[in-house]
Every structure is written in C-alpha cells, then in structure tokens.
Amino acid sequence: MAVSTQTQNHRLADVIAAFEEVYPPGWAASWDAVGLVCGDPVQSVERVLFAVDPVSAVVDEAVEWGADLVVTHHPLMLRGVTSVAADTPKGRVVHRLIRAGTALYTAHTNADTAAPGVSDALARTVGLTGDLSPLDPDPTDPEGRRGIGRVGVLDRPMVLRDFADRVAQALPATAAGVRVAGDLDRQVTRVAVSGGAGDSLLGAARAAAADVFVTSDLRHHPSSEFVEAGGPALVDTAHFASEWPWLEEGASHLVDALARRRGPGGANVEVRVSTTVTDAWSRTFSRV
C-alpha cells in the first residue's frame, strides 16, 4: 500500500494525532502502556511499518526498509523500567531505533477495544459476516460497539474440523499451529473471537451462546474444565497470529486519517505490514 504525492511530508506528531483519532489512548486499559515510545515529534515521516511485536527482527526490517516510524500492537515496556541501557534486549531496541532515526509507537488495548479493532479483523479473517457485537462490551461506550472480543456468524455453517482448518489457513503459519478442543463433527455457526490471550473470556463466550471460541494462550485447567462443562468448542491459535490481521486494518485507517486531514491524496506516506513471524515458539516436536 503506498500513497505518493507532492505535498509536504508529515511530522511524527501529525501522524500520531491522525492515528489517535481512530485509536484514542484514552480507550486503553489503566494498566497498559500505549503511545510514543521513542522518536522526535518534529521528525518527518514518509514510511511507516506496522508489526505485532517490537523485537529485534522487526527492527531489522524497519532499518533495512528505511522506516521512519514503527507502529506495534504490543508495548516494548509494559512495566516501569529504570534503564534503557543497550546491554538489555529492550534497551538495544531503543538504541537501534534512535540511531536509525526510527520512531516507535504502540497501540495495544485501545486497538483491542476499538470498533473496528483487533478482534473485528480476526473475525473477518476467519469468515464471520454481518454485524459483530463485543464479547465483553466497554461500559463507557453508549453505542455498545466497543469492547474486547467479538461475536458473529459464519458465512455458512460447517463442522468444527473444517472451521479449525479454515482458521489455520487464514492466519500466519506458526510452529504451534492451531489447537482444537471439542467434537470435530460439531456444527459451527455462531462464533466468538478474541485476538490475543482470551481465557478470561471463556464465560463470556458461553454466555454469548457461541458454538466455538477462537482465541490464544489458552491454559490447560481452564480449557479442560470449560470443555468438560459443555462449553463451546475451542480453537487456540498463536498469540501473534490472532492479532496479525489487525495490522492491515490499522495501516489503512492511518492512511485514511491522514488523507482526511489534507484532502484526497494528502496521506503522503508509504505503509508496510510486516510479515515477519514474531511468535515466541520456533518449532514443535512430537513423539513418533
């Protein structure tokens, strides 16, 4: 996706302001750390890289491409730090970005709760159509559209086996792949999804009368007890994979927001969605 015009380049502060029109930081959870991590607000931005994780492989990609700004979903420093010395992994990321003149910005739970947001992108990717409703609504939203997770219906009913395969084919390939709990011949029509770790929403998925819940990082005991109690089937994906579909949507919203500020053709930025797999797991082994 690229937009090229002869208009003056955007300052970082302008790009951030446009992006925050779509994903206001005030929507983030109180424990979260969103916003500008490093970068000069007056620096010029021509290239923006979207990625899930602010890790060294993404910095490699950003520097090689010449990105002026990296927008990640996950925070680099979620908890307080007292040093960003380059002898730590996080410190090295900061130093490399600053040396390259590349800013880093995070949109995390504010992108999760947005409508559309992270779970909307996941829902569309796995085949949900029509209106989507939040799995865990944001009580501050009078319209009832924002919140964590989404619930909707498939474009056509299918058995769990086929649906799980659809999820596996639609999301980025990872070492762990997709895990399934439940009767593989179960009919699936109504689906709940939540990008990222979602076992805190198991009860909400049951209350929503979903046939299956798609999320990530499901733990053994909650999942086992949930299935034993007759809850919806479960499809567990890699955390990185379930949030990756939002990157294209976030990039598109940024271009649109910048264009609204300057009129048609006024975006004047080139955006790229990283395809670097930043899942923590690199390989699985099975007993033969």
Rank of each mutant, 00 (worst) to 15 (best):
T215A: 13
A233V: 05
F240G: 06
A204R: 15
E249W: 07
S224M: 06
A205V: 15
R206C: 08
P245W: 07
E243A: 09
A238K: 00
E225T: 06
A251K: 07
A257Y: 12
D217I: 11
R262N: 07
H253M: 09
D217G: 10
V255F: 00
S216R: 03
S224W: 11
H220V: 13
F226C: 00
G230S: 03
L258I: 06
G231Q: 06
F226D: 08
V255Y: 01
L218I: 04
A207Q: 14
V227M: 04
S216C: 15
H239G: 10
A205R: 09
S200L: 10
S242C: 08
P222D: 14
E228C: 00
A208V: 03
L254S: 08
V212Q: 09
S223F: 11
A208H: 11
S223R: 03
W246Q: 10
A205Q: 04
S200N: 07
A229W: 01
R260A: 12
A205H: 04
F226I: 04
L218V: 06
D211L: 06
A233P: 02
H220Q: 13
A204H: 15
S223C: 05
A204Q: 15
R219F: 05
G198Q: 08
A251P: 09
W246M: 14
V255L: 04
A259N: 11
T215P: 10
R261P: 00
V255K: 01
R261G: 01
A251V: 10
E228G: 07
V214T: 03
A207K: 12
P245M: 11
L218G: 14
D199Y: 04
S224D: 13
D211Q: 03
